[in-house]
């Protein structure tokens, strides 16, 4: 007994190491499996408010860029508005689907923490459950998509960025054609590029072709531009091919984003859940 005790004391550093290391690994594995809202993440109040403070200083550096972006967006909206005004309503009877008109709500949020250099990147926003945000909502910016809300606290929410190995978003190759695939980050190194997988081989893609969201999920409205094709065929010889695209979202300069709220999401999800029951 005494010898055992001496042994433990002699090598206490090793045993303590095993103890603490196993504890950490358990934390890692548990977090990976369940992705549950845990205390130790950046939607917690202390960490969130620290990032908010830092961000309030950093915002000044990005003012010029932001103004430019807002101006461009204004110009685009004005152009679309002009298009509507020009329609001669006398010439034909207009049928407008009133459900589609205000199906989506957009909440403006500010990015208060962002990462692009990790293997799994997350973004923290300054809107939380008290602003009507909840998990599994899409996040977009004025010129592309950003990610999906993962955890929500009262005033903050964390977003799983597109630059995350476990994210898949349904996209279509053209706003009209029905060829669709899933968008993944893929190469895990560069924040500017992503891959579109599971495109059938017979579909021809060309360099510069725009990629849009398909609208099949409840996360993003149909027809948001995601990026442009730069390498039409990365894998060939199989029945599906991969396409490398250049993202329109500049993840290194994210500042203002919109959280998409789909009012029909619940209805669609519960209807689709019926199908699974019948299988």
């Amino acid at each position: 007994m005494k010898n055992l005790w001496l042994f433990l004391v002699r090598y206490n550093a090793f045993f303590l190491f095993i103890l603490f290391f196993v504890f950490s690994i358990v934390l890692v594995v548990r977090n990976n499996n369940y992705q549950r809202a845990s205390f130790f993440n950046s939607s917690n109040a202390v960490v969130g408010s620290y990032f908010k403070k830092i961000n309030s200083w950093k915002a000044y550096l990005a003012l010029a860029d932001d103004n430019q972006k807002l101006l461009e967006e204004n110009a685009l909206l004005r152009k679309q508005l002009q298009g509507f005004l020009a329609i001669d309503t006398n010439s034909q009877i207009q049928l407008i689907d009133s459900i589609e008109i205000d199906r989506y709500d957009f909440t403006v949020a500010t990015v208060i923490n962002n990462s692009i250099h990790q293997k799994s990147n997350y973004i923290t926003l300054d809107k939380g459950s008290s602003h009507g945000v909840h998990a599994n909502m899409g996040v977009i910016t004025s010129n592309g998509i950003v990610g999906i809300v993962e955890n929500v606290s009262k005033n903050f929410s964390t977003v799983r960025s597109l630059l995350h190995p476990d994210i898949r978003i349904s996209v279509s190759l053209d706003s009209v054609s029905d060829a669709f695939g899933s968008l993944v980050w893929g190469n895990n190194i560069d924040s500017r590029y992503a891959m579109v997988r599971d495109i059938p081989n017979h579909v021809k893609a060309y360099v510069g072709q725009p990629i849009f969201t398909s609208g099949y999920s409840t996360l993003f409205p149909k027809g948001i531009k995601v990026g442009h094709v730069i390498e039409p065929e990365v894998v060939s010889g199989e029945s599906f091919k991969e396409i490398r695209i250049l993202l329109t979202t500049d993840f290194s300069k994210l500042h203002h984003v919109y959280i998409v709220k789909d009012k029909l999401a619940e209805e669609k999800v519960s209807l689709e859940a019926l199908n699974k029951d019948n299988e």
Binding site: V26, V28, S120
Partner: peptide, 16 residues
């Protein structure tokens, strides 16, 4: 870890 949203990863490395 709290700031990196990576529960346990830095903890394990620091213990090592």
């Amino acid at each position: 870890d709290a700031f990196y949203d990576s529960v346990g990863v830095h903890a394990a490395a620091c213990v090592a």
